[in-house]
Amino acid sequence: MNETQNCEWVESKMDLYMDRELGDEANAVEQHLATCTECAETLAFRQALRQKVRSAADGAPVPGDLAARVRTRLDTQGSFRSWTSRHWSALAAAAMFVLVAGGLAVTQTSGSRSGVPEVVMLSQVFAQTSSLLRVGLQDHIHCARFQSYPAQGPTLEALAAGLGPDFRDLVKIVHDHAPQGLQVVEAHRCAFGTRKYIHVVARHGEQLLSLVITERGSGESLGNELKSVLSESGVNLYAANHADFQLAAFETGQYLTYLISNVSPSENVDALRAMTPALREVFRKAEI
């Protein structure tokens, strides 16, 4: 083996050698390094540079209160159980069973206020609503109607932080424009199968309101299924109702946005109308 070939071979093995991933061939590399100054210096340079990179990266600043914010997030959302497709499969199966069996006279479950359990309420939504109405309503029913959030829960700031930088403003938007008396009590992300939601919940006594946002699927258009009631900031607002749920919605290129509550129909539409300009600004930034 001449020296040039040997240097090329060592060069080809140098990363592995430096990372102690070479195995048995390490001995051959070391024998070459003992006699070849150029390769030894190349290795020394690479090791020194790696050490410099590690030192520079390890020295990058970390926010001093990051640990506290992580702990706050765990305290506020650590017990939240996002709903997975597995949960939903079971729920849908149960709903179908209830429908088929006609067993509507079932006992009240925890979290229900009217005596109608979640599974029955959802079965009615599955049976009686259009698909795009269902998209928003099912999230409201599962994550707001049948969940209890403490009235004196996390601060608005902590809730906003949980939504991430692009969507943190949603908490303030709901806080500013929800009908009088409703206070934001929860903000989170959740998922149903492949559909993901951002969800802000406000409550005042028995009044309950959800802002629900999800990505708009291919071919989905509210105009195909719901009635447009007015136009705000260049978008059409749609309205519908199911049982005592009032629903207002609009769509942008990427998102479907729902406001669902049990306030009056006009209050619900007016609230979404008031939120629309700020929501569109949030989407505009997020879509960049």
Partner: peptide, 18 residues
């Protein structure tokens, strides 16, 4: 981006805790 980094780290700890 510091905000996105923190978002990812918070989500990591939340997922890990769950």
């Amino acid at each position: 981006d510091s905000a996105r980094a923190e978002d990812a780290v918070q989500e990591t700890f939340l997922q890990a805790w769950k």
